[in-house]
C-alpha cells in the first residue's frame, strides 16, 4: 500500500472533467484506490465520489493505493496533477 498527497493546481479545482480523468486512471487499475480530502474518504473509482469532494484550487488530496499496480497508478496520478489536468493554456 502506498499513499500520495497531491496538490490541486489547476484554476477551477476538481470539477467534472478532471474528475473524469482521475477516474479513467483508477477504473483501469487493478489496485484499490481511495481518495481523501478533508474529513472525507471515498472510493476513487467513482466519478461521483470524486466530484462530490469538490476539491478547491490549491487544496491537497491524498490517494491511498493498494494493489499489484499501485506504483504505476501513483505515477499516472502524479503526472495528471503535475500537468494541471492539461487544461490551463
Amino acid at each position: 500500500m502506498i499513499t500520495r498527497v497531491l496538490q490541486v493546481t489547476n484554476k477551477l479545482g476538481i470539477h467534472a472533467r478532471p474528475a473524469g480523468m482521475i477516474v479513467e486512471i483508477t477504473t483501469h487499475a487493478q489496485s484499490d484506490v481511495q481518495i481523501c480530502y478533508g474529513d472525507s474518504r471515498a472510493n476513487a473509482k467513482s466519478i461521483l465520489n470524486v466530484m462530490m469532494l469538490a476539491a478547491e484550487p490549491g487544496s491537497e488530496i491524498k490517494f491511498v493505493i493498494n494493489g499489484p499496480d499501485e506504483e504505476r497508478v501513483a505515477e499516472e496520478l502524479e503526472k495528471l496533477f503535475a500537468n494541471r489536468f492539461y487544461e490551463d493554456g
Binding site: G20, S46, L48
Partner: peptide, 9 residues
C-alpha cells in the same frame, strides 16, 4: 463524463 457517471457504482 456522462458515460463515466452512468457507469459509476
Amino acid at each position: 463524463t456522462h458515460v463515466q457517471i452512468l457507469q459509476d457504482p
